[in-house]
């Protein structure tokens, strides 16, 4: 094993790690936000809104991420949507994740006891206040494990952005490996990075869950 390559390619790899984390973070946040919007619109929208959103969900879930990304990055310019690799990648991740997030939120909303909503209505709260003050906070708590789980899945999807030349960690590792023939060292480091990354997220996730559900658990 030749470790000297890390002194030469270290900065590139570090930049790659950073970009991967940024892509994951933004992809998760934007994807979850879009998913939340979809879930709320599905709950309150009319029949046609619900149908349109359901179709969107099925279309996105039914196609591979790579295909979506190529459509966006290589197909986009043909309809005037010219994006740089990074924005295209982030937009792709957001779109790719949104239906999964939407489904998570949708089932979490369904799990909110209707009585809690009725209590809000009976007291004269607006629907908007009910969503903000009751549906979202109560729903989020039950959605949390699934949200964390899917955000972990998304960490690993970020490597696909390398194919449209986003210089994230997969891209940088590939670059180093082909330049120096250090396939074993390079990809081993990459695997280690993802394992550690996921480990950190799931630990933080568990801590967050405990914090949030602390006072919700029935004392026995």
């Amino acid at each position: 094993m030749d470790l000297s390559i890390f002194t030469e390619y270290g900065p590139r790899l570090l930049a790659g790690f950073r970009l991967t984390i940024i892509c994951w973070l933004l992809g998760t946040v934007f994807g979850a936000a879009l998913g939340l919007l979809i879930a709320v619109a599905q709950r309150y929208g009319g029949r046609s809104v619900r149908w349109a959103l359901q179709t969107y969900i099925e279309l996105i879930r039914g196609t591979p991420f790579l295909v979506q990304l190529f459509l966006l990055y290589y197909g986009g310019p043909m309809i005037g949507l010219r994006l740089d690799p990074l924005p295209a990648g982030l937009l792709g991740l957001t779109i790719y994740g949104s239906p999964y997030f939407a489904e998570i939120f949708r089932s979490a909303f369904r799990a909110v006891p209707p009585g809690l909503i009725e209590a809000g209505r009976a007291i004269g709260m607006t629907e908007l206040a009910i969503v903000r003050r009751i549906l979202l906070p109560v729903g989020l708590v039950s959605a949390l494990p699934a949200l964390i789980n899917f955000s972990i899945i998304l960490t690993k999807e970020t490597v696909i952005l390398s194919i449209i030349t986003v210089p994230e960690i997969m891209y940088q590792t590939q670059y180093m490996a082909t330049m120096t023939f250090t396939f074993l060292e390079g990809y081993f480091t990459l695997a280690l990075f993802f394992w550690a990354f996921v480990e950190v997220i799931s630990r933080l996730g568990r801590r967050l869950e405990r914090r949030i559900t602390r006072h919700l658990i029935e004392r026995t």
Binding site: P113, G115, L116, A119, A122, P137, L216
Partner: peptide, 14 residues
């Protein structure tokens, strides 16, 4: 102006 009390209390848990 109409108060309602439910069988299952329906307090907001958070």
């Amino acid at each position: 102006t109409i108060g309602m009390v439910f069988q299952q209390f329906n307090l907001w848990p958070h």
